[in-house]
Design a binder for these strands. Structure first.
Lengths: 254, 254
DNA sequence: ATACACCTTAACGCTGCGTCAAGGTCAATG
DNA sequence: CATTGACCTTGACGCAGCGTTAAGGTGTAT
């Protein structure tokens, strides 16, 4: 198929002026000029224009594009794979921006707090990849992705009052655990009260509470040394004691 | 928190020059100027800048932004909801672009064919909404979404040779059906051969063949008047006959 | 007191087109 | 066959949104 300027322009969703400009700067020359001086574009030009638009969409300057697609060793397939990768990156960034809007909305309605830094998340390009690579992996691998990640987010978004209340609840869990430990009975009333406090505390972090998840976290307190260390400060074996109490409390036994 | 130009610039991921320019054109004035003439930005300015960047990301001109966020009845929450919607639209467009890359890759490797128009899908903004609204609904509602839609896609992407072969298979189905109809026996050999040809024909459209899906389509030939009309051209009751034959062929009976 | 990282205003330059202006081409129409 | 209307051409100016350079003041740590 052959196209005049406006034909190709309409096809590609750009202006005729843009095509003339691309001709002028040598980025995209028509296949030929007809007897009346009209620009006529053919199949090759269509493919080249597609490449140009992909690069443009990704924010590459026209001169750089010219160098890239004009290079003698330019590979369309290779370029397309590159485009794919870059577009996926862009989509990721868009998702961050959307999350930002949601968060800002929640903040504007007073439901959560928000740092200045968070208010600009998603606007800056790049850099996030590195963070993702550096930290993302180990942290998520250990914690089990989704749930823990979400908890952390929710924690970051609390208002100060909420945060204070959580802190209070957290320390009362520790206090109750201390008393319960003295009895030595994870099924006893004190231990069960501790488990209940622990449930309340967790509910601040989670959207939905389930017995299974609660028991899962209790088990993690024993499996993950960071948590174990935290609870065992009170007394060695405290983490295991809390886990036993929660298992009994929830009725879940793994 | 208070920020100098560079402080805010780093926070927001923009340049100090940009902030000075925004001051110059009255888009974002600092909260105050200190004794040495430094620009100092406060909390309000941060929120305003966030709004500005959202609009900018969506391609709105600076002057228009100025009018919007400077309007006396400007509502942050309302704006955020708008942003959300626009960003979702943008993400949709990005998805189209990514699909385009994938398709172009398949095309470049000779696996499918591709029209010129398809090569520019996703570059043009807008308009797709209307198409979606106008056609999408009725068509999908009737046909059962996914499967039919996918089939259509696959059909569009075939090379010419493939297409020719499919056409040939399709007409041989009709021919076989005609002969089979003469026997009047959907369980007979001719009818079963027809069902087998029909299976082969379907396999060109589907990624994975299952007896159930095959039988489902056969039933649709009776239920949907467009298909019924198509087959009944041969002879009234042809669609029902084909369905019966396919039911026997697949061993599925609904 | 000097070095260094900030800040200021002022000015010019660049990209990627949009937007006239002034004119030729082409097919259908009265 | 002349006119109309939708195309095409080159040429030129204009504009947004900054980047960049220049020439200089500020703040504080050594």
């Amino acid at each position: 198929m052959e196209y005049t300027v406006q034909g190709l322009a309409k096809l590609a969703g750009i202006s005729a002026r843009t095509l003339r400009y691309y001709d002028e700067i040598g980025l995209l020359k028509p296949a030929r000029i007809n007897a009346s001086g009209y620009r006529i574009y053919g199949q090759k030009e269509i493919e080249r224009l597609q490449q140009i638009l992909f690069y443009r969409e990704l924010g590459v300057g026209l001169e750089k594009i010219s160098n890239i697609v004009g290079a003698p060793d330019f590979s369309q397939v290779k370029a397309l794979r590159e485009h794919r990768e870059q577009l996926l990156k862009k989509r990721k960034q868009l998702n961050v921006l959307i999350a930002n809007v949601d968060k800002t909305l929640a903040w504007a309605e007073g439901r959560i707090s928000m740092t200045d830094k968070e208010k600009f998340e998603g606007f800056k390009q790049q850099m996030l990849d590195d963070n993702e690579k550096k930290y993302g992996q180990e942290i998520r691998a250990k914690y089990g992705d989704e749930q823990v990640n979400k908890s952390y987010q929710k924690l970051k978004n609390m208002t100060e009052e909420q945060f204070a209340e959580v802190e209070k609840l957290g320390s009362s869990v520790l206090a109750a655990l201390k008393s319960a430990l003295a009895t030595g009975d994870p099924a006893g009333e004190l231990a069960q009260q501790t488990a209940d406090l622990h449930r309340q505390w967790l509910s601040y972090y989670w959207d939905s509470y389930t017995k299974e998840a609660h028991a899962g976290v209790a088990q993690m307190y024993v499996d993950d040394e960071r948590f174990t260390a935290y609870y065992d400060r009170i007394q060695p074996g405290a983490a295991a004691f809390l886990r036993d109490a929660v298992f009994i409390y929830t009725g879940v036994n793994k």
